[in-house]
Amino acid sequence: MREYKFEKPVLKAYRSWIESEIRRPEVRREKDAFVKTYFSKPPLFFLRPAFLAPASSFAVMMFIAVLWYWPTTSLKPGREIQMMHREGAVVENVASGDSDVVVSPGMVDVKRVASRVGTPMVYYKSNHGQPITIIWIFTGGNTP
């Protein structure tokens, strides 16, 4: 029954392999990220987006309504817009269509990007006035 003599070290090696794998720091990091993302306590009610968004919208509308009914406050929106067009600073540059201009990311906010096989780069471009976000992985040899 020679084969059964050697089962012991093989099964011991098998157990050791699994034990070493689960003790890897990456497994712990993945676990923590997983729990934090999906199974952590939600914020207090009044800090949640479901409350804050309409509440703040309502507050803004109330503010504008106040201004509407009392037009003697110092803010004069119409006059300021005319000033911007005269200076031609922000609006014209964004609409230039130059794809090398980096514009502020309004549409997409990249919270995290990683790659195990290459270098990730994030580009914010303008395409006919529309902001476009591109995430590109350079794996050596591929140029966009």
């Binding site: 794998e21 689960i22 497994v27 676990k31 997983f34 999906y38 199974f39 952590s40």
Partner: peptide, 22 residues
Amino acid sequence: DKDAFGKLVKQYYEMVYGLALG
């Protein structure tokens, strides 16, 4: 209670991972 389930995940994650790996 997601927080409670999160505690269960923390407790059993390595076990489930090891089973899956096997």
